[in-house]
Design a protein around this nucleic acid. Structure first.
Length: 480
RNA sequence: GGCGCCAUCGUCUAGUGGCCUAGGACAUCGCUCUCUCAAGGCGAAGAUCACGGGUUCAAAUCCCGUUGGCGCUACCA
Protein backbone atom coordinates (compact mmCIF):
# COMPACT_ATOMS: atom_id res chain seq x y z
CA UNK A 1 0.00 0.00 0.00
CA UNK A 2 1.36 3.33 -0.95
CA UNK A 3 0.61 6.44 1.07
CA UNK A 4 -1.34 8.75 -1.14
CA UNK A 5 0.57 11.92 -1.92
CA UNK A 6 -2.77 13.58 -2.62
CA UNK A 7 -3.75 12.88 0.97
CA UNK A 8 -6.76 10.68 0.44
CA UNK A 9 -7.59 7.02 0.32
CA UNK A 10 -8.80 6.23 -3.18
CA UNK A 11 -11.70 3.77 -3.55
CA UNK A 12 -9.58 1.89 -6.07
CA UNK A 13 -6.89 1.38 -3.47
CA UNK A 14 -9.59 0.33 -1.06
CA UNK A 15 -10.80 -2.30 -3.45
CA UNK A 16 -7.27 -3.58 -3.99
CA UNK A 17 -6.82 -3.82 -0.24
CA UNK A 18 -10.14 -5.60 0.05
CA UNK A 19 -9.27 -8.20 -2.59
CA UNK A 20 -5.96 -8.84 -0.87
CA UNK A 21 -7.78 -9.20 2.41
CA UNK A 22 -10.43 -11.53 1.00
CA UNK A 23 -7.78 -13.63 -0.67
CA UNK A 24 -5.82 -13.93 2.55
CA UNK A 25 -8.94 -14.86 4.50
CA UNK A 26 -10.02 -17.38 1.93
CA UNK A 27 -6.69 -19.15 2.03
CA UNK A 28 -6.20 -18.72 5.76
CA UNK A 29 -3.12 -16.72 4.95
CA UNK A 30 -1.54 -13.69 6.51
CA UNK A 31 -2.60 -10.22 5.54
CA UNK A 32 0.34 -7.87 5.78
CA UNK A 33 0.23 -4.13 5.47
CA UNK A 34 3.32 -2.56 4.02
CA UNK A 35 3.73 1.13 3.44
CA UNK A 36 5.61 1.81 0.26
CA UNK A 37 7.14 5.11 1.14
CA UNK A 38 10.51 4.97 -0.54
CA UNK A 39 9.95 8.40 -1.97
CA UNK A 40 10.46 10.55 1.09
CA UNK A 41 9.14 13.68 -0.54
CA UNK A 42 5.83 12.09 -1.35
CA UNK A 43 5.17 10.49 2.00
CA UNK A 44 4.16 11.81 5.36
CA UNK A 45 2.66 10.54 8.56
CA UNK A 46 -0.63 12.23 7.79
CA UNK A 47 -1.00 10.45 4.50
CA UNK A 48 -0.30 7.13 6.12
CA UNK A 49 -2.79 7.88 8.86
CA UNK A 50 -5.52 8.39 6.29
CA UNK A 51 -4.85 4.95 4.88
CA UNK A 52 -4.81 3.27 8.28
CA UNK A 53 -8.06 4.93 9.29
CA UNK A 54 -9.66 3.91 6.03
CA UNK A 55 -8.63 0.31 6.55
CA UNK A 56 -10.12 0.32 10.03
CA UNK A 57 -13.35 1.89 8.84
CA UNK A 58 -13.80 -0.81 6.22
CA UNK A 59 -13.27 -3.46 8.85
CA UNK A 60 -9.84 -4.53 7.70
CA UNK A 61 -8.08 -3.23 10.74
CA UNK A 62 -6.40 -6.49 11.66
CA UNK A 63 -3.19 -6.98 9.77
CA UNK A 64 0.45 -7.69 10.38
CA UNK A 65 2.50 -4.54 10.35
CA UNK A 66 2.42 -1.96 9.04
CA UNK A 67 5.97 -2.25 7.80
CA UNK A 68 7.59 0.85 6.44
CA UNK A 69 9.95 0.67 3.51
CA UNK A 70 11.52 3.91 4.65
CA UNK A 71 12.81 2.02 7.69
CA UNK A 72 14.36 -0.78 5.68
CA UNK A 73 16.76 1.17 3.52
CA UNK A 74 19.85 -0.80 4.49
CA UNK A 75 18.26 -4.03 3.28
CA UNK A 76 17.64 -2.61 -0.17
CA UNK A 77 21.11 -1.11 -0.30
CA UNK A 78 22.66 -4.52 0.19
CA UNK A 79 20.81 -5.96 -2.78
CA UNK A 80 21.62 -3.00 -4.95
CA UNK A 81 25.30 -3.26 -4.15
CA UNK A 82 25.20 -6.91 -5.00
CA UNK A 83 23.73 -6.15 -8.40
CA UNK A 84 26.38 -3.54 -9.08
CA UNK A 85 29.15 -5.88 -8.04
CA UNK A 86 27.85 -8.56 -10.36
CA UNK A 87 27.62 -6.14 -13.25
CA UNK A 88 23.84 -6.37 -13.33
CA UNK A 89 23.40 -2.71 -12.52
CA UNK A 90 25.45 0.40 -13.14
CA UNK A 91 25.81 3.99 -12.08
CA UNK A 92 24.18 6.67 -14.13
CA UNK A 93 25.49 10.21 -13.90
CA UNK A 94 23.00 11.74 -16.27
CA UNK A 95 21.09 14.80 -15.29
CA UNK A 96 17.39 13.90 -14.93
CA UNK A 97 16.31 17.23 -16.37
CA UNK A 98 18.38 16.67 -19.52
CA UNK A 99 16.96 13.21 -19.94
CA UNK A 100 13.48 14.51 -19.51
CA UNK A 101 14.04 17.08 -22.23
CA UNK A 102 15.33 14.46 -24.61
CA UNK A 103 12.37 12.26 -23.88
CA UNK A 104 9.90 15.05 -24.42
CA UNK A 105 11.51 16.08 -27.67
CA UNK A 106 11.29 12.53 -28.93
CA UNK A 107 7.69 12.27 -27.83
CA UNK A 108 6.79 15.43 -29.71
CA UNK A 109 8.32 13.97 -32.83
CA UNK A 110 6.22 10.88 -32.15
CA UNK A 111 9.32 8.82 -31.70
CA UNK A 112 10.06 6.14 -29.18
CA UNK A 113 12.64 7.01 -26.59
CA UNK A 114 14.64 4.80 -24.31
CA UNK A 115 17.70 5.43 -22.18
CA UNK A 116 20.68 4.70 -24.45
CA UNK A 117 23.03 3.30 -21.81
CA UNK A 118 25.49 6.12 -22.28
CA UNK A 119 26.69 5.80 -18.69
CA UNK A 120 27.20 2.07 -19.04
CA UNK A 121 29.56 2.79 -21.90
CA UNK A 122 31.55 5.49 -20.15
CA UNK A 123 35.31 5.14 -20.46
CA UNK A 124 37.40 4.78 -17.34
CA UNK A 125 38.61 8.33 -17.67
CA UNK A 126 35.13 9.74 -18.12
CA UNK A 127 33.90 7.84 -15.13
CA UNK A 128 36.80 9.02 -13.00
CA UNK A 129 36.06 12.56 -13.96
CA UNK A 130 32.40 12.30 -13.02
CA UNK A 131 33.41 10.82 -9.70
CA UNK A 132 35.96 13.56 -9.13
CA UNK A 133 33.46 16.32 -9.79
CA UNK A 134 31.01 14.61 -7.47
CA UNK A 135 28.29 14.33 -10.09
CA UNK A 136 25.15 12.87 -8.49
CA UNK A 137 24.65 9.29 -9.57
CA UNK A 138 21.66 7.01 -9.66
CA UNK A 139 21.76 3.26 -10.19
CA UNK A 140 20.24 1.69 -13.26
CA UNK A 141 19.38 -1.95 -13.74
CA UNK A 142 21.06 -3.49 -16.77
CA UNK A 143 18.15 -5.13 -18.52
CA UNK A 144 19.22 -8.49 -19.95
CA UNK A 145 18.27 -9.12 -23.53
CA UNK A 146 15.80 -11.88 -23.13
CA UNK A 147 12.10 -11.11 -22.95
CA UNK A 148 9.81 -11.92 -20.08
CA UNK A 149 6.66 -13.99 -20.01
CA UNK A 150 4.64 -14.70 -16.93
CA UNK A 151 1.25 -16.09 -16.11
CA UNK A 152 -1.06 -13.64 -14.48
CA UNK A 153 -3.84 -15.19 -12.41
CA UNK A 154 -6.47 -12.92 -13.89
CA UNK A 155 -4.99 -11.88 -17.23
CA UNK A 156 -3.34 -15.09 -18.25
CA UNK A 157 -0.08 -15.03 -20.16
CA UNK A 158 1.56 -11.63 -20.43
CA UNK A 159 4.81 -11.06 -22.22
CA UNK A 160 7.11 -8.21 -22.93
CA UNK A 161 10.17 -7.97 -25.11
CA UNK A 162 13.39 -6.82 -23.44
CA UNK A 163 13.91 -4.21 -26.10
CA UNK A 164 10.79 -2.51 -24.80
CA UNK A 165 12.15 -2.23 -21.30
CA UNK A 166 14.69 0.45 -20.64
CA UNK A 167 17.42 0.28 -18.03
CA UNK A 168 15.23 1.58 -15.26
CA UNK A 169 16.48 3.30 -12.13
CA UNK A 170 16.58 1.19 -9.01
CA UNK A 171 18.27 3.71 -6.75
CA UNK A 172 17.79 7.45 -6.84
CA UNK A 173 20.70 9.86 -6.69
CA UNK A 174 19.71 10.55 -3.09
CA UNK A 175 20.44 6.94 -2.24
CA UNK A 176 16.86 5.72 -1.79
CA UNK A 177 15.64 2.71 -3.74
CA UNK A 178 12.73 2.98 -6.14
CA UNK A 179 9.47 1.11 -5.88
CA UNK A 180 10.34 -1.65 -8.33
CA UNK A 181 13.44 -2.64 -6.43
CA UNK A 182 12.04 -2.24 -2.94
CA UNK A 183 8.89 -4.23 -3.56
CA UNK A 184 10.82 -7.10 -5.10
CA UNK A 185 13.16 -7.30 -2.15
CA UNK A 186 10.32 -6.99 0.35
CA UNK A 187 8.04 -9.46 -1.33
CA UNK A 188 10.86 -11.95 -1.07
CA UNK A 189 11.91 -11.07 2.46
CA UNK A 190 8.34 -11.07 3.73
CA UNK A 191 7.60 -14.30 1.93
CA UNK A 192 4.76 -12.80 -0.05
CA UNK A 193 3.14 -15.55 -2.09
CA UNK A 194 0.69 -13.46 -4.11
CA UNK A 195 1.01 -9.97 -5.43
CA UNK A 196 -2.49 -8.56 -6.00
CA UNK A 197 -2.60 -5.01 -7.32
CA UNK A 198 -4.13 -2.73 -9.92
CA UNK A 199 -3.75 -3.38 -13.63
CA UNK A 200 -1.78 -0.17 -13.94
CA UNK A 201 1.10 -2.23 -12.59
CA UNK A 202 1.05 -4.75 -15.40
CA UNK A 203 3.90 -3.04 -17.21
CA UNK A 204 5.98 -2.98 -14.04
CA UNK A 205 5.74 -6.68 -13.53
CA UNK A 206 8.22 -7.78 -16.21
CA UNK A 207 10.75 -5.35 -14.75
CA UNK A 208 10.26 -6.87 -11.35
CA UNK A 209 10.52 -10.39 -12.67
CA UNK A 210 13.87 -9.49 -14.21
CA UNK A 211 14.92 -8.22 -10.81
CA UNK A 212 13.88 -11.44 -9.07
CA UNK A 213 15.95 -13.35 -11.58
CA UNK A 214 18.99 -11.11 -11.30
CA UNK A 215 18.83 -11.33 -7.52
CA UNK A 216 18.14 -15.04 -7.72
CA UNK A 217 15.04 -14.78 -5.57
CA UNK A 218 11.91 -16.88 -5.58
CA UNK A 219 9.08 -15.18 -7.48
CA UNK A 220 5.55 -14.74 -6.12
CA UNK A 221 2.39 -15.21 -8.16
CA UNK A 222 0.88 -12.14 -9.76
CA UNK A 223 -2.74 -11.14 -10.07
CA UNK A 224 -3.69 -7.82 -11.56
CA UNK A 225 -7.06 -6.24 -10.98
CA UNK A 226 -9.06 -4.40 -13.63
CA UNK A 227 -9.14 -0.66 -13.21
CA UNK A 228 -12.09 1.24 -11.80
CA UNK A 229 -13.30 3.74 -14.35
CA UNK A 230 -15.35 6.92 -14.19
CA UNK A 231 -18.41 7.61 -16.31
CA UNK A 232 -16.23 8.66 -19.24
CA UNK A 233 -14.33 5.36 -18.99
CA UNK A 234 -11.02 6.82 -17.96
CA UNK A 235 -9.33 5.81 -14.74
CA UNK A 236 -11.47 6.98 -11.82
CA UNK A 237 -10.09 10.22 -10.52
CA UNK A 238 -11.07 13.32 -8.64
CA UNK A 239 -12.66 14.99 -11.61
CA UNK A 240 -15.26 12.21 -11.67
CA UNK A 241 -16.51 13.29 -8.26
CA UNK A 242 -16.04 11.48 -5.01
CA UNK A 243 -13.08 9.12 -5.03
CA UNK A 244 -11.83 9.25 -1.50
CA UNK A 245 -13.09 6.89 1.13
CA UNK A 246 -13.70 9.77 3.48
CA UNK A 247 -16.12 11.41 1.08
CA UNK A 248 -18.23 8.28 1.06
CA UNK A 249 -18.07 8.11 4.81
CA UNK A 250 -19.19 11.70 5.09
CA UNK A 251 -22.02 11.21 2.62
CA UNK A 252 -23.32 8.50 4.89
CA UNK A 253 -22.41 5.31 3.12
CA UNK A 254 -22.06 2.31 5.39
CA UNK A 255 -18.69 0.57 5.23
CA UNK A 256 -20.47 -2.76 4.82
CA UNK A 257 -22.32 -1.51 1.77
CA UNK A 258 -19.18 -0.08 0.24
CA UNK A 259 -17.27 -3.29 0.83
CA UNK A 260 -20.06 -5.35 -0.69
CA UNK A 261 -20.27 -3.06 -3.69
CA UNK A 262 -16.52 -2.92 -4.21
CA UNK A 263 -16.24 -6.69 -3.94
CA UNK A 264 -18.61 -6.99 -6.88
CA UNK A 265 -16.78 -4.43 -8.97
CA UNK A 266 -14.55 -6.72 -10.98
CA UNK A 267 -15.43 -9.96 -9.27
CA UNK A 268 -18.50 -12.12 -9.12
CA UNK A 269 -19.18 -15.34 -7.27
CA UNK A 270 -20.49 -16.97 -10.42
CA UNK A 271 -24.09 -17.27 -9.34
CA UNK A 272 -26.72 -14.63 -8.73
CA UNK A 273 -25.74 -13.69 -5.21
CA UNK A 274 -25.02 -9.99 -4.89
CA UNK A 275 -25.83 -9.18 -1.31
CA UNK A 276 -23.76 -10.83 1.38
CA UNK A 277 -25.87 -10.11 4.43
CA UNK A 278 -26.39 -12.45 7.32
CA UNK A 279 -28.11 -11.41 10.55
CA UNK A 280 -28.49 -7.90 9.30
CA UNK A 281 -24.83 -7.38 8.58
CA UNK A 282 -22.29 -7.89 5.87
CA UNK A 283 -20.88 -11.36 6.39
CA UNK A 284 -17.27 -10.97 5.41
CA UNK A 285 -16.55 -14.62 6.08
CA UNK A 286 -19.18 -15.67 3.62
CA UNK A 287 -17.70 -13.23 1.12
CA UNK A 288 -14.19 -14.49 1.76
CA UNK A 289 -15.33 -18.07 1.48
CA UNK A 290 -16.68 -17.46 -1.95
CA UNK A 291 -13.89 -15.20 -3.12
CA UNK A 292 -11.62 -16.60 -5.82
CA UNK A 293 -8.96 -14.71 -7.69
CA UNK A 294 -9.56 -16.65 -10.86
CA UNK A 295 -13.10 -15.34 -10.92
CA UNK A 296 -11.87 -11.78 -11.16
CA UNK A 297 -12.84 -10.19 -14.44
CA UNK A 298 -10.14 -8.76 -16.70
CA UNK A 299 -12.20 -5.97 -18.22
CA UNK A 300 -12.20 -2.57 -16.53
CA UNK A 301 -15.32 -1.56 -14.63
CA UNK A 302 -17.22 1.71 -14.48
CA UNK A 303 -18.02 2.89 -10.96
CA UNK A 304 -21.80 3.21 -10.67
CA UNK A 305 -22.81 5.39 -7.77
CA UNK A 306 -26.49 4.59 -8.31
CA UNK A 307 -25.98 0.94 -7.63
CA UNK A 308 -23.87 1.76 -4.59
CA UNK A 309 -26.75 3.89 -3.29
CA UNK A 310 -29.18 1.06 -3.78
CA UNK A 311 -26.87 -1.28 -1.94
CA UNK A 312 -26.39 1.23 0.84
CA UNK A 313 -30.15 1.41 1.31
CA UNK A 314 -30.30 -2.37 1.48
CA UNK A 315 -27.79 -2.29 4.32
CA UNK A 316 -29.48 0.64 6.07
CA UNK A 317 -32.77 -1.23 6.09
CA UNK A 318 -31.10 -4.21 7.73
CA UNK A 319 -29.76 -2.21 10.66
CA UNK A 320 -31.51 -2.64 14.01
CA UNK A 321 -33.41 0.48 15.05
CA UNK A 322 -31.07 1.50 17.88
CA UNK A 323 -28.08 0.90 15.64
CA UNK A 324 -29.53 3.04 12.93
CA UNK A 325 -30.25 5.84 15.35
CA UNK A 326 -26.72 5.68 16.65
CA UNK A 327 -25.29 5.94 13.15
CA UNK A 328 -27.66 8.68 12.10
CA UNK A 329 -26.99 10.95 15.08
CA UNK A 330 -23.80 12.53 13.74
CA UNK A 331 -25.57 13.34 10.50
CA UNK A 332 -28.44 15.00 12.35
CA UNK A 333 -25.96 17.12 14.20
CA UNK A 334 -23.86 17.91 11.16
CA UNK A 335 -26.89 19.07 9.19
CA UNK A 336 -27.80 21.39 12.02
CA UNK A 337 -31.09 19.61 12.57
CA UNK A 338 -30.46 19.22 16.28
CA UNK A 339 -27.66 19.68 18.76
CA UNK A 340 -26.08 16.79 20.58
CA UNK A 341 -27.71 17.92 23.83
CA UNK A 342 -31.17 18.14 22.28
CA UNK A 343 -30.76 14.63 20.99
CA UNK A 344 -29.88 13.42 24.46
CA UNK A 345 -32.96 15.07 25.91
CA UNK A 346 -35.36 13.73 23.30
CA UNK A 347 -34.19 10.20 22.96
CA UNK A 348 -37.60 8.58 22.49
CA UNK A 349 -38.79 11.14 20.00
CA UNK A 350 -35.57 10.82 17.97
CA UNK A 351 -35.87 7.08 17.97
CA UNK A 352 -39.36 7.28 16.50
CA UNK A 353 -38.30 9.72 13.81
CA UNK A 354 -35.39 7.42 12.98
CA UNK A 355 -37.65 4.41 12.75
CA UNK A 356 -39.83 6.20 10.25
CA UNK A 357 -36.94 7.46 8.16
CA UNK A 358 -34.78 4.34 8.16
CA UNK A 359 -36.32 2.59 5.16
CA UNK A 360 -36.42 5.84 3.22
CA UNK A 361 -32.76 6.85 3.08
CA UNK A 362 -30.22 5.90 0.49
CA UNK A 363 -27.45 7.59 2.42
CA UNK A 364 -27.40 8.79 6.00
CA UNK A 365 -26.88 12.38 4.94
CA UNK A 366 -30.21 12.22 3.12
CA UNK A 367 -31.88 12.82 6.47
CA UNK A 368 -31.47 16.54 5.87
CA UNK A 369 -33.10 16.42 2.47
CA UNK A 370 -35.85 13.90 3.30
CA UNK A 371 -36.62 14.48 6.94
CA UNK A 372 -35.89 18.10 7.67
CA UNK A 373 -39.56 18.90 8.38
CA UNK A 374 -39.43 16.78 11.52
CA UNK A 375 -36.81 19.02 13.03
CA UNK A 376 -37.04 22.46 11.53
CA UNK A 377 -39.63 24.86 10.18
CA UNK A 378 -37.40 26.12 7.40
CA UNK A 379 -37.86 23.11 5.13
CA UNK A 380 -38.82 23.89 1.56
CA UNK A 381 -42.22 23.19 0.09
CA UNK A 382 -42.31 21.30 -3.18
CA UNK A 383 -43.69 24.13 -5.20
CA UNK A 384 -45.65 22.19 -7.82
CA UNK A 385 -47.09 19.79 -5.28
CA UNK A 386 -48.30 22.56 -3.04
CA UNK A 387 -49.88 24.38 -5.96
CA UNK A 388 -52.03 21.35 -6.68
CA UNK A 389 -53.65 21.63 -3.29
CA UNK A 390 -54.49 25.32 -3.10
CA UNK A 391 -57.86 25.38 -4.80
CA UNK A 392 -60.77 26.97 -2.95
CA UNK A 393 -62.39 23.73 -1.94
CA UNK A 394 -59.22 22.26 -0.53
CA UNK A 395 -58.47 25.40 1.40
CA UNK A 396 -61.91 25.21 2.86
CA UNK A 397 -61.53 21.59 3.85
CA UNK A 398 -58.20 22.31 5.43
CA UNK A 399 -59.69 25.17 7.36
CA UNK A 400 -62.17 22.76 8.93
CA UNK A 401 -59.55 20.07 9.43
CA UNK A 402 -57.43 22.55 11.29
CA UNK A 403 -60.21 22.91 13.85
CA UNK A 404 -60.41 19.16 14.23
CA UNK A 405 -56.68 18.93 14.80
CA UNK A 406 -56.81 21.70 17.35
CA UNK A 407 -59.37 19.73 19.33
CA UNK A 408 -57.39 16.55 19.50
CA UNK A 409 -55.79 16.12 22.86
CA UNK A 410 -53.72 14.55 23.95
CA UNK A 411 -51.87 14.64 20.65
CA UNK A 412 -49.58 11.75 21.41
CA UNK A 413 -51.12 8.77 19.75
CA UNK A 414 -50.98 8.40 16.00
CA UNK A 415 -53.83 5.93 16.04
CA UNK A 416 -56.09 8.35 17.91
CA UNK A 417 -55.21 11.16 15.56
CA UNK A 418 -56.02 8.95 12.63
CA UNK A 419 -59.40 7.96 14.03
CA UNK A 420 -60.42 11.54 14.75
CA UNK A 421 -59.42 12.76 11.32
CA UNK A 422 -60.97 9.84 9.48
CA UNK A 423 -64.17 10.24 11.44
CA UNK A 424 -64.36 13.85 10.46
CA UNK A 425 -63.72 12.92 6.85
CA UNK A 426 -66.42 10.30 6.64
CA UNK A 427 -68.92 12.38 8.65
CA UNK A 428 -68.54 15.10 6.05
CA UNK A 429 -68.54 12.82 3.03
CA UNK A 430 -64.99 13.61 2.10
CA UNK A 431 -62.91 11.25 0.10
CA UNK A 432 -59.71 10.34 1.90
CA UNK A 433 -57.49 11.71 -0.83
CA UNK A 434 -59.31 15.04 -0.66
CA UNK A 435 -57.79 15.88 2.67
CA UNK A 436 -54.95 13.49 3.34
CA UNK A 437 -52.68 14.68 0.53
CA UNK A 438 -53.13 18.38 1.18
CA UNK A 439 -52.60 17.79 4.87
CA UNK A 440 -49.31 16.06 4.19
CA UNK A 441 -48.10 18.79 1.90
CA UNK A 442 -49.13 21.61 4.22
CA UNK A 443 -47.31 20.05 7.13
CA UNK A 444 -44.24 18.48 5.50
CA UNK A 445 -43.90 20.23 2.18
CA UNK A 446 -43.66 16.91 0.41
CA UNK A 447 -45.92 14.74 -1.70
CA UNK A 448 -44.53 11.59 -0.16
CA UNK A 449 -43.00 10.51 3.10
CA UNK A 450 -43.53 8.33 6.13
CA UNK A 451 -47.07 7.40 7.27
CA UNK A 452 -48.94 10.63 7.78
CA UNK A 453 -50.46 10.17 11.21
CA UNK A 454 -47.19 9.12 12.78
CA UNK A 455 -45.62 12.09 11.12
CA UNK A 456 -48.23 14.49 12.49
CA UNK A 457 -47.88 13.11 15.96
CA UNK A 458 -44.11 13.46 15.95
CA UNK A 459 -44.20 16.96 14.57
CA UNK A 460 -46.65 17.83 17.32
CA UNK A 461 -49.94 19.65 17.39
CA UNK A 462 -48.53 23.10 17.84
CA UNK A 463 -46.24 22.94 14.83
CA UNK A 464 -48.85 21.24 12.67
CA UNK A 465 -51.37 23.95 13.46
CA UNK A 466 -48.83 26.66 12.78
CA UNK A 467 -47.85 25.22 9.42
CA UNK A 468 -51.42 24.74 8.24
CA UNK A 469 -52.28 28.22 9.40
CA UNK A 470 -49.39 29.69 7.49
CA UNK A 471 -50.53 28.11 4.26
CA UNK A 472 -54.10 29.17 4.85
CA UNK A 473 -53.04 32.74 5.56
CA UNK A 474 -50.73 32.97 2.62
CA UNK A 475 -52.99 31.43 -0.01
CA UNK A 476 -56.44 31.62 1.48
CA UNK A 477 -57.26 35.16 0.48
CA UNK A 478 -55.78 34.96 -2.99
CA UNK A 479 -58.18 32.22 -3.91
CA UNK A 480 -61.34 33.73 -2.51
C1' G B 1 4.46 7.64 -31.25
C1' G B 2 6.13 2.76 -28.75
C1' C B 3 4.60 -1.25 -25.72
C1' G B 4 0.83 -3.81 -23.10
C1' C B 5 -4.12 -5.01 -21.80
C1' C B 6 -9.32 -5.17 -22.71
C1' A B 7 -14.08 -5.61 -25.67
C1' U B 8 -21.75 -9.53 -23.65
C1' C B 9 -28.10 -4.86 -22.32
C1' G B 10 -26.95 2.57 -20.38
C1' U B 11 -23.91 0.37 -15.93
C1' C B 12 -21.98 -4.12 -12.93
C1' U B 13 -21.92 -9.02 -14.55
C1' A B 14 -23.27 -14.84 -15.76
C1' G B 15 -21.51 -17.51 -19.75
C1' U B 16 -14.89 -21.56 -20.59
C1' G B 17 -17.78 -25.25 -28.07
C1' G B 18 -24.02 -27.70 -28.22
C1' C B 19 -28.43 -26.47 -22.11
C1' C B 20 -28.13 -19.24 -25.28
C1' U B 21 -34.39 -17.70 -29.62
C1' A B 22 -27.82 -14.96 -24.12
C1' G B 23 -29.36 -15.46 -17.48
C1' G B 24 -29.16 -12.05 -13.04
C1' A B 25 -28.52 -7.10 -10.56
C1' C B 26 -28.74 -1.52 -10.70
C1' A B 27 -31.11 2.26 -13.42
C1' U B 28 -35.75 3.08 -16.65
C1' C B 29 -41.07 2.13 -17.57
C1' G B 30 -45.76 -0.30 -16.26
C1' C B 31 -48.94 -2.97 -12.76
C1' U B 32 -49.71 -4.39 -7.61
C1' C B 33 -49.65 -3.14 -2.28
C1' U B 34 -50.68 1.56 0.34
C1' C B 35 -52.98 7.71 3.11
C1' U B 36 -48.39 9.10 -0.05
C1' C B 37 -43.22 7.92 -0.55
C1' A B 38 -39.69 4.10 0.32
C1' A B 39 -39.36 -1.07 0.56
C1' G B 40 -41.64 -5.57 -1.43
C1' G B 41 -44.18 -8.59 -5.35
C1' C B 42 -45.21 -9.14 -10.61
C1' G B 43 -44.11 -7.67 -15.54
C1' A B 44 -42.01 -4.81 -19.81
C1' A B 45 -38.33 -2.65 -22.48
C1' G B 46 -33.16 -3.04 -23.20
C1' A B 47 -27.18 -6.94 -26.04
C1' U B 48 -27.45 -8.43 -34.59
C1' C B 49 -22.35 -11.06 -27.72
C1' A B 50 -17.42 -4.21 -31.27
C1' C B 51 -16.53 -5.41 -36.63
C1' G B 52 -14.46 -8.78 -40.53
C1' G B 53 -12.46 -13.34 -41.66
C1' G B 54 -11.34 -18.33 -40.44
C1' U B 55 -11.43 -23.45 -37.46
C1' U B 56 -15.73 -26.81 -36.43
C1' C B 57 -21.38 -30.76 -37.85
C1' A B 58 -21.90 -26.59 -34.15
C1' A B 59 -18.81 -20.36 -31.67
C1' A B 60 -20.50 -15.04 -27.24
C1' U B 61 -17.08 -19.07 -26.16
C1' C B 62 -11.02 -21.22 -30.15
C1' C B 63 -7.51 -18.64 -34.00
C1' C B 64 -6.13 -14.33 -37.11
C1' G B 65 -6.97 -9.35 -38.60
C1' U B 66 -9.43 -4.53 -38.06
C1' U B 67 -11.53 -0.87 -35.07
C1' G B 68 -12.30 1.29 -30.48
C1' G B 69 -11.25 2.01 -25.33
C1' C B 70 -7.94 2.00 -21.43
C1' G B 71 -3.18 1.66 -19.09
C1' C B 72 2.09 2.28 -18.94
C1' U B 73 5.86 4.97 -21.25
C1' A B 74 9.24 9.23 -14.12
C1' C B 75 15.49 9.49 -9.98
C1' C B 76 5.71 8.28 -8.38
C1' A B 77 3.71 3.99 -6.71
Amino acid sequence: MAPSPTGFFHVGSARTALYNWLFAQHNKGKFILRVEDTDVERSSEDMIKVVLEGMAWLGMGQYEGPYYQSKRMDIYKKHIEKLIKEGKAYYCYCNPQDLKKERQAAYEKKEDWKYDRRCLNLSKAERAEKEKSNTPKAVRFLVPDHGVTYKDIVYGEISRDSKDIEDFIIQRANGTPTYNLACVVDDYEMEITHVIRGADHITNTPKQILLYEALNLQKPEFAHLPLILGKDKSKLSKRHGAVSLREYQEKGFLPDALVNYLALLGWSPGDDQEIFIRNGKLDKDMLANRFMLDRVNSANAVFDITKLEWMNQQYIMQLSHPEFKQLLKPFIIKSGLMTAQDIEGNSDWIQKVCDLMQPRLKTLSDIDKNGRFFFKDDFTYEHDTLKKHLDKETLHIMQKLLQVIKEIHPFDDAGEIEIKLRDYGSDNNLKVKQWIHPLRVYVTGCAGGPPLFDTLQLIGKERCVKRINNILKEYGRLND
